[in-house]
């Protein structure tokens, strides 16, 4: 299977850092997941082959780490912390608010495939609680209003991208029409 050049460069750089090949597994899985969206059978087979592991071994590792998933997720993975520091400052309300707003529960993905909601453990933002991460971005000292703004921003970003894809598509259409004509 094909990964991006960036991934390949990272992979190539990383493997020689270790005396055993498989040592590169965990970070590599995360990078592959970032790229593909989830760890598909194909990704698993590919990485197992590259690192001299069985697919079973790779699956055993994947299923251990909570950030790794073999199931597709939304474009924005909304991870709301409800652990102790967040709990006492309203983390659960943020989570409930998101659940209502998105209409999904823990690990649920919105039908448009944009958001996946997840209740997560402490993300290291305790002094700025309550906190959440959207993919890798931290959002701290949250209130429900602030959370709304974060979600709106995601939507806007998605729309902008959609727009861009559409315009690329129409450009491609125009180009192909022109070449045909």
């Amino acid at each position: 299977m094909k990964f991006s050049e960036e991934f390949e460069a990272r992979f190539a750089e990383m493997v020689p850092h270790y005396p055993t090949k498989r040592s590169a597994l965990v970070p590599t899985l995360l990078y592959a997941q970032d790229e593909v969206g989830f760890l598909s059978d194909e990704v698993i087979a590919e990485l197992a082959g590259r690192l001299d592991l069985t697919e079973l071994e790779v699956r055993n590792v994947i299923s251990y780490y909570s950030m790794l998933t073999t199931k597709p997720r939304g474009k924005f993975n909304l991870q709301v912390c409800t652990n102790i520091s967040c709990l006492v400052r309203g983390g659960e309300e943020i989570l409930q608010h998101c659940a209502k707003k998105l209409g999904v529960g823990h690990k649920g993905t919105t039908p448009d495939g944009l958001f996946t909601l997840e209740e997560v453990e402490c993300i290291g933002a305790c002094s700025w609680a309550p906190a959440a991460q959207v993919n890798y971005d931290f959002h701290e000292n949250l209130t429900t209003e602030k959370m709304d703004r974060v979600l709106d921003k995601c939507l806007a970003q998605a729309q902008e991208q959609l727009q861009r894809i559409k315009s690329v598509d129409s450009l491609a259409d125009t180009l192909s029409q022109r070449s045909e004509g």
Binding site: T54, L56, E57, R59, N60, S63
Partner: peptide, 19 residues
């Protein structure tokens, strides 16, 4: 043969077959 592994963690840990 290495046909068995452990999947998941914690109380969800489970012995898993290779295929």
């Amino acid at each position: 043969v290495w046909a068995l592994g452990v999947q998941n963690r914690g109380v969800s840990s489970i012995i898993a077959p290779n295929k």
